[in-house]
Nucleic acid binder design. Structure first.
Lengths: 195, 195
DNA sequence: CACACCTATTCAAATAGTTCAGTAATAGCG
DNA sequence: CGCTATTACTGAACTATTTGAATAGGTGTG
């Protein structure tokens, strides 16, 4: 349903091939609407069939031929209508890791710690990638300047949401690691370790 | 895939019917693994078939007969194995609203503001419900006491993650509303409104 | 020069998730 | 008494998503 509009929104940045889109989805849109390359190619086919995007074939010198897609007026219009409508579906988070954490209290603490460290590292890695995208978007301007003056602020603001999300993810892991420390070595009433 | 383990993790709290599980998923597990009642009933059937949960039929006086499910030893064990394994799938967020926000810069600002207000109200409502679950979990203890001494801390910690998530959601909406204000009435170099 | 990885796309099959509808009984409201 | 809501569950059809594999040339590394 919404993949359609996610693709149209991605094409607001300009013409792109299926492959390029799959990269864009990887680094920024995956934040709120993940999609595999296969999904994208199918959706692009459908959107082109419906006249919401236009395709042109570009033969390349030393690369396979690619097809570049761009928004049509009809596509831009449908996206505008969608974006002004009330949101139908609430946010859905699917996180296998948090299922494991829900069940953590029956599991070897060392294994839990390993999971937490891994997740934390992953969140910090994603954060670093987001920060690079952010620098590119700001392009030398300060955040305030950009938010006041840029033509488009949507991409920056959704990216900021992703940055907060990953930062809080990392912080959560750190907090849980601290909690586990406190449970491994319980404290007496005066704060000194027991046992 | 993971719905299986989400159901097993939910049954760590004790015996429950499909209907009761659907309520549990609504208020707390939906935070990281949403599931409709239909999905749950199907999954419970499968888990019972595989011997990971045990079902018993409980005829009721003034209600339809219900089936109560509880973890078997096999189920508890498989959940333990799953929870100690490295996480396969990264977090997937699907958020129609953020697609709209990505495309906000071509849309009537009044409509965007309405979406933001709606989302903010929704996040604050969810936050309030989470806080009530939190009070129930703490049951008079302070957070520190609970995290040090409780038998299980998993449910509290995943709930805390949900609380942070919704709080940041609401804050994001407030920030974007402020940004939109700044763009409606751009400031001059000395900080006074222009026009 | 072998090997892995990148660009660029397509096809088929399997799994997961959503939607709509329905059954059936009780409770509470005006 | 009719209306709506709640408890409790089932079935079928549909849509969306994931996975695996295949094709095919190019680029970089040791």
């Amino acid at each position: 349903m919404s993949l359609k509009y996610a693709v149209l929104a991605a094409l607001l940045e300009g013409e792109a091939s299926g492959y390029e889109l799959s990269k864009i989805f990887d680094v920024s849109l995956a934040n709120f609407w993940p999609a595999t390359p296969q999904q994208l190619y199918r959706e692009l086919e459908r959107l082109a069939g419906d006249g919401l995007i236009a395709a042109r074939t570009v033969p390349q010198e030393r690369r396979p031929t690619k097809r570049l897609f761009s928004l049509t007026e009809a596509g831009r219009e449908q996206l505008g209508v969608f974006a002004a409508e009330p949101t139908r579906r609430p946010t859905a988070v699917r996180d296998e890791f948090l299922i494991k954490m829900q069940a953590m209290d029956g599991v070897d603490p060392a294994a839990v710690r390993a999971l937490l460290e891994e997740r934390r590292a992953w969140a910090l890695g994603k954060l670093a990638r987001y920060e690079r995208v952010r620098e590119r978007l700001l392009d030398g301007r300060t955040e305030e300047e950009h938010l006041r003056e840029a033509d488009r602020v949507g991409p920056y603001l959704t990216l900021a949401a992703g940055i907060t999300f990953e930062r809080e993810n990392a912080r959560w892991c750190e907090r849980v690691l601290t909690v586990l420390d406190g449970r491994r070595a319980p404290m007496g009433p005066a704060g000194q370790p027991l046992g």
